[in-house]
Nucleic acid binder design. Structure first.
Length: 355
DNA sequence: TAAGCGTGGGG
DNA sequence: TCCCCAAGCTT
């Protein structure tokens, strides 16, 4: 196992990518990068990480900002609870830890959004603690090295113990990152380059001749499809948006009012009903502007947008849950991708307000 | 334990 | 086009 560690590390140093967060061992930077990298590929994260550090050079600046600014920086990255939890953690550290990130495993892992993987990874890098960070890559590599197939909690625990015995004691952080780079470039889930792998000699899956059979694939459930209808309501040169509940799907982001159509309901009736329920005013959908499609983690939607005329006078009040904004102000608010697709439709129509 | 959570890219 | 995948965490 010691030999594996050496071979993996030399492969890493030869093929190491220069990533922005690899220029420092500051726990703030490392922690942020690990949160952004959850379920997200490196090339996607890089621009978000750079923009974030430019806006929030220190954790204190995250704590002193409001959630809207944080979500704006997270806009488009997905899994928005990561951003909300990171902001929440920043406040906890500022208020309860004098602004110092607590670097004991139990304290750090107790922060919102920090799980076993993130805690192990951060501590292995910033404190050189010999902790394997069992992410999807390292897990997959372990299954193949040891020739395990069934993804049971028992097998995963076995792997963790095995890796923790063999992890480099001098460079645990590099060892973790090395295995992850190996997993994301050589030992991928559906494609392997065993001829380039520094440890194929001791790999049971490689020896078997069909490495992709390890671990065995678990079948995924089909995701449902929903039809959603939303309304565009003008008042002078501004239109209406509202904020989603902070703890739900796309929590804290802004959107057009509307929602799912129910059985035997027309899109127009849906827009009327949802706006009556959510906004407490009456509108009349006049004309369909267009429809976009979007796929989320666990369902997909077709979303239509309707020009709506107010039936009654709508009070123009702006608060934390509702705003009247001009098209040019879109960039000040965080919107989900589906809304940006609708904005794109509207741009192509020059934001024509005539119904 | 298993479902829920975004988005972009690859085959 | 469709399906799967990607440095997980929370409930």
């Amino acid at each position: 196992m010691k030999i594996i560690s050496q071979q993996v590390l030399s492969w890493y140093y030869e093929n190491k990518r220069d990533l922005p967060w690899r220029t420092t061992n500051d726990p703030y930077n490392i922690w942020l990068s690990e949160i952004m990298l959850q379920q997200t590929q490196v090339d996607t994260v890089i621009p978000y990480y750079n923009k974030w550090i430019e806006k929030f050079p220190t954790l204190r600046q995250v704590a002193n900002s409001n959630l809207d600014d944080v979500l704006k920086m997270w806009e488009g990255l997905g899994y928005y609870s990561r951003g909300r939890n990171f902001h929440k953690s920043a406040l906890i550290i500022e208020n309860q830890h004098n602004g110092i990130i607590p670097l004991t495993y139990d304290e750090f892992k107790s922060l919102p959004g920090v799980g076993a993987y993130t805690a192990n990874m951060v501590l292995s890098i910033v404190s050189k603690e010999p902790r394997i960070a069992m992410d999807g890559n390292i897990r997959r590599i372990g299954f193949r090295l040891l020739g395990l197939k069934r993804q049971t909690p028992y097998n995963i625990k076995r792997l963790e113990l095995w890796f923790n015995k063999g992890i480099s004691k001098n460079r645990p952080g590099d060892f973790n990152q090395a295995l992850m780079d190996l997993g994301s470039s050589i030992c991928k889930a559906k494609m392997v380059r065993c001829d380039q792998c520094p440890i194929s000699k001791i790999c049971v899956a490689f020896a078997s001749g069909s490495p992709l059979d390890y671990p065995c694939i678990t079948k995924k459930k089909k995701t449902p499809h929903y039809t959603v209808a939303t309304g565009l309501i003008w008042q002078e040169d501004s239109f209406y948006i509202q904020k989603r509940a902070e703890n739900g799907h796309l929590g804290g982001l802004w959107e057009f009012p509307g929602g799912k159509i129910e059985k035997n309901e027309s899109e127009i009736d849906t827009v009327k009903r949802k706006i009556r329920e959510e906004c407490q005013f009456e509108i009349n959908p006049e004309k369909k502007i267009g429809t976009i499609k979007h796929v989320y983690s666990h369902f997909s939607i077709s979303m239509s947008l309707y020009h709506c005329l107010p039936i009654e006078d709508i009070p123009v009040k702006n608060n934390g849950q509702m705003r009247w904004i001009k098209p040019a102000e879109i960039s000040k608010y965080a919107f989900p991708k589906a809304n940006h697709k609708l904005f794109h439709l509207l741009k192509n129509q020059n934001w024509n307000r005539n119904v």
